[in-house]
Each structure stands twice: as C-alpha cells, then as structure tokens.
Simulated scan of single mutants.
Amino acid sequence: MSAIRQAGPWLEFLADPGDFLAAAGGHLAAEPVLSTVVATGAHRRLTQQAVGITPPGPDWWLVVRDGSGTVIGTGMRSATAEPYPLFLLPMPDEAAVGVARALHARGEQALAVNGALPAVRLCADELARLSGGEVLVNRRTRLHELTELVPPRPVPGTLVAAVEQDLDLVTAWFHAFVTDADEQAGRPRGAGEHELPDQGELLRRIRSGQYWFWTDESGRRVHLTGANPPSFGVARIGPVYTPPEQRGRGWASNAVAEVSRRLQAAGVRACLFTDQANPTSNRVYAALGFRPVMDTANLVIAHSQHAVA
C-alpha cells in the first residue's frame, strides 16, 4: 500500500491482512496477549476476505519498523462502523505521532483512535492538532490475562453452546451488552463508541462455536459469554452479558470461569478487556484470577461540526 521512511521508526501501510501477518506475525506472536485485538482482527479479515466480505470503511494494516527493518509496532484500521477508529498497539512515541501525520498528509479523516496507551493518546493529540479538534476520552479500558483460575462459588445450571436458532437472542443480548455497559460505567446508555457485528457476522461466529449461554436448572438461558477464536495461542473473552433481572446470581462468574477453564484445558491463554469505570466487572474478573496487562483507551477527536458524546 505505502511505506513512509524516516530517520527514526518508519511506517508501512498494507492493504492485505495476509501480507500484514507475513510481515508482522512474529512480532505479534512474541506478545500474543498484548497483540490480541490486532491479531484477531487480521485473522478475522482473512476469513471474511475468503467469502467476499468487504469492510465499509478504511481497511489497512500498519507495520512499524526501526532503522534495521525490525518490526517494533503494529496497528490497523478495519472497523466496520463509523467513525472507523484506528487501533494501535505499543510503538515508539514518534511512530504514533507519525501515524497521525501520515493520515493527515493523504487526506484520510480519523475521528477516533483506540488501543494501547500512550500511543493512542499521542496519535489522537496530533490528529486533533492538525485538524483543529479536541481529544475526548470515550472509555478508559484495561486488558487482563487469566493467570491461575480461581473457581467461583458454584451456582445451579450449566454452560451450553449457542446454536443457529439462538441468533435473535444473541443479537438482542449483544446489543443490550453495549448499552448496558455504558450505563454501568456511569455514561448515558448508547453514549459510547461501539462496534456491533451484524447478524450475518454473528451467525458465522455462532457456527464456529464462539458463543455460550449459561442455563439455569430449568434450562432457561440467563447469561451470554463469547470468546474469539485463538490467535497465536490467545483467545479474548467477550461479550459477557447478563440481563438486568438475572444479575447478582453468579451466572457471569461461573460462565466466564467455565469458558476460561475450557480454553486453558486446550492450551489456550485467556484474556479480556474491562471498562475501568465499571467496578463490578473489574471486581468479578479479579476474583477469577484475571490480572492487568495493559492500559488502553478509546479516544475521539471532536470538532465543532461533529456531535460527539
């Protein structure tokens, strides 16, 4: 796609996720938990590419190299919903600033940046400076990895895989998850910037075994937990959703614990993101044995002509 060489780190923008993985796969695999979003995103795009699915917005993959050509950072822009945020993993400060300048130079508008701190803050600050905008924090998030699983207090019921007939319920609960998450973190419902898969994508995920329900002793579905397919030996858990009337009964703890146990039994490391403004979910995951790995953030660049929550 393009490469921007400079005295320090230089940037290589690639259009094909396969080319990106060939260039940066070793770097991603060296820190597979930190790399989970970009690695999962690239592998998912390869799967979508094979069946002819094209993202509606920008679609590129970033490799950051040092002067010797060694990969020292990565990123991507392949989100399927506006404002099509960038996602950056750890990289040198000058590279993060360079990403903003590269996009500005080629006229590519970017109104949101997600990923690792401080890279996303530096990139967003430069985007705002170049465009006359202001950086606002949408969400402060944190990546956690499960170390040793601490079993929660057992509750009645069992974990069952979602099937095609569950598509409508999975869709409804996935949408409820993002709006309820805002409310639980003290934001207006729907105020946050979220990427919601459409029903076609959710059906593909159900067919590949990525969603489970916790069912109570009567067999009623009371909770939903998802997990991405492993990339470089790491699977990211989410969404984790319990309807309001079913909360406080231990369904989420037991479902996440069982999904995590199955992942670890298969030799896969488990990780997940939390919203730092949601003390309940942070407390639940800490009790299960999840430990902080990296602070991340979702930032937006607001301008007077844009209404940004």
Rank of each mutant, 00 (worst) to 15 (best):
M1Y: 15
M1W: 14
A7W: 01
A15R: 07
A22H: 14
A22I: 10
A29T: 08
G41M: 03
L46M: 14
G52H: 04
I72E: 01
R77A: 06
T80P: 00
F87W: 09
M91S: 08
D93G: 13
L103Q: 12
R106K: 11
G107H: 14
Q109M: 00
V113R: 00
C123K: 10
L130W: 07
G132K: 11
G132L: 12
R142K: 14
L146C: 07
L149I: 13
P154T: 11
A161M: 08
Q184R: 10
R187S: 11
P188Q: 11
A191S: 13
L202H: 01
R204S: 02
Q210L: 01
W212E: 04
W212H: 13
F213V: 09
S218M: 06
G219C: 03
T225E: 03
G226M: 06
G226D: 11
P229N: 03
G238S: 09
T242N: 05
P243L: 03
P243G: 07
E245Q: 11
W251V: 07
S253T: 12
S260D: 11
A270S: 14
D275N: 06
Y285L: 01
A286G: 14
A286F: 09
A287I: 14
G289K: 09
R291L: 05
R291M: 02
N298H: 09
L299W: 04
V300S: 00
S304N: 01
